[in-house]
Amino acid sequence: MHAITYETPKSLDEAVKLLAAHGEKARPLSGGTDLLIQLRAGTRRPDFVVDIKRIPELTRISFSLQHGLRLGAAVPCIEIHENGDMRKYYPGLTEAAHLIGSLQIQSRASVGGNLCNGSPAADTTPALIALGAQARVVGPKGERMVPVEGFCLAPGRTVLQPGELLVEFQIPAPERHCADAYLRFIPRNEMDIAVVGVGAALTLDMSDDRVVEARIGLGAVGPTPIFAAEASKSLIGKTLDAAAIDNAARLAIAASSPIDDMRGTAEYRRHVVGVLTRRVLAKAAERARQSDQR
């Protein structure tokens, strides 16, 4: 491992300047739970590491029923789990953040880092996709909003240009009878990477139990996290019965394109996309129906 310059900017402006000045040679550091491993393994070799944990915009959670959620990209997962609004209004995203690694890892790892690492198996990304989250990106040329499902380009590659920094996620406030859920499959019960992850968010019309809005996100079953658009659309206007759920599950499988690797075979992963889609829709629907009791 070679020598690295460690920078600790205190403002967004300072961070963007540092990142822009060093371009490809710089890498932002949030919790470091991916980056440090990549440094040791030699798969990333930056000369500059820019620690972004001292920048206010990146480390705060702000929520109101009027304006929805702004979640700083470097907020550690454990703070999400400890936040009452997050647990109440975004239980799916919260459970995804609470599944990553161990409690020690969750004290370091962030949702923003999870996305910027560009892994198709990131647990929080399908949950963000289900919630229709937008990523606010700031760079030398100004800022832009990127829908999370368009953020990753390939394993380890994202839309971020040299000098650009992911600042926060913006997620609309939940409507009545709206809820999300996230499930993943791992062979063990902790300390594992998703073989398949499925996030779903549903809004129900309680007068006739029809689906008003639905979004399904898939993880670990393609080169990037996937928004299962057809599967999501198939549910809208339908009663959430077994046939509708089955149809959505099969469309979710159709949206996936997994490979064989040490975490599972392609045929197994496709099958489990169906299993988890059914389970996660049932779970989200259950939560949506009970969301009055919030």
């Binding site: 159709a254 599972g264 197994y268 496709r270």
Partner: peptide, 20 residues
């Protein structure tokens, strides 16, 4: 799980779930 599911589906004479 992938190895066991394959064997379970084979005894049930079911395929892995395929796309719609």
């Amino acid at each position: 799980p992938p190895r066991l599911l394959k064997a379970m589906l084979a005894t049930r004479a079911e395929p892995f779930e395929e796309q719609a």
